[in-house]
């Protein structure tokens, strides 16, 4: 059986037994979700890479020390470590994280239509700009749940454990995030003029 066919748990066992290649597969398998979850909270590529690296250093030390709790899933565990490091960072910096990026990557590029007219392009660009601003209005705890749910593909039970709240609170934050985004998209003209 190749590494790609093994479960996370099997790869973790192999790594603990000294198989370094299994760590490479675990990182390759989950790096996008973990890195994106960190990056969207800290909004800075270099800082996200530092936290990503620190996250895996903690993972490695924990695994090699034989302290890993096999009852949990690997990805939520790693995301929890990353999440805690992000919190540590903002406690030090004393500023609030936001979901939007600063390097020019546009969340709404995907909405693009090929062979669109100039008017359509302008409308699309305006929509992109508006929605990017609207996301800023989401409270950090709502953005956090949205990120964990989408990128981490975590259950609300996992999100609740990660953020030290009840399942209902995690679910409520997601609902508020979606409802707020929807309302803001509907009322964006008034909101953005304010």
């Amino acid at each position: 059986m190749s590494f790609q066919e093994k479960t996370d748990q099997e790869l973790v066992h192999l790594y603990i037994q000294g198989n370094e290649a299994s760590l490479s597969e675990l990182i390759n398998r989950h790096q996008s979700r973990i890195y994106t979850s960190i990056y969207l909270l800290v909004k800075d590529e270099y800082l996200a890479e530092d936290i990503f690296q620190d996250t895996f250093i903690k993972v490695i030390r924990t695994l090699k020390a034989g302290k890993y709790n096999e009852e949990g899933k690997f990805l939520p565990w790693v995301l929890r470590i990353g999440h805690n490091l992000v919190i540590d960072h903002f406690r030090k910096e004393k500023r609030n994280p936001t979901i939007t990026n600063s390097d020019g990557f546009d969340i709404f590029d995907v909405l693009g239509i090929h062979d669109e007219s100039m008017e359509e392009k302008m409308v699309k660009q305006q929509t992109h700009d508006d929605l990017k601003k609207l996301i800023h209005y989401l409270p950090s705890e709502q953005k956090e749940v949205l990120i964990m749910r989408h990128y981490g593909e975590l259950s609300f039970k996992d999100i609740a454990e990660l953020t030290n709240v009840s399942i209902n609170t995690a679910l409520g934050r997601m609902r508020y995030a979606l409802n707020n985004l929807r309302k803001m998209m509907t009322n964006k003209e008034q909101l953005l003029k304010a």
Partner: peptide, 20 residues
């Protein structure tokens, strides 16, 4: 979701190499 998926990014290869 399609818009959110467009935000997915990967760390640099150098960082992964450093971890390994």
């Amino acid at each position: 979701k399609p818009a959110l998926d467009q935000l997915i990014k990967n760390p640099s290869a150098a960082v992964v190499e450093h971890i390994l």
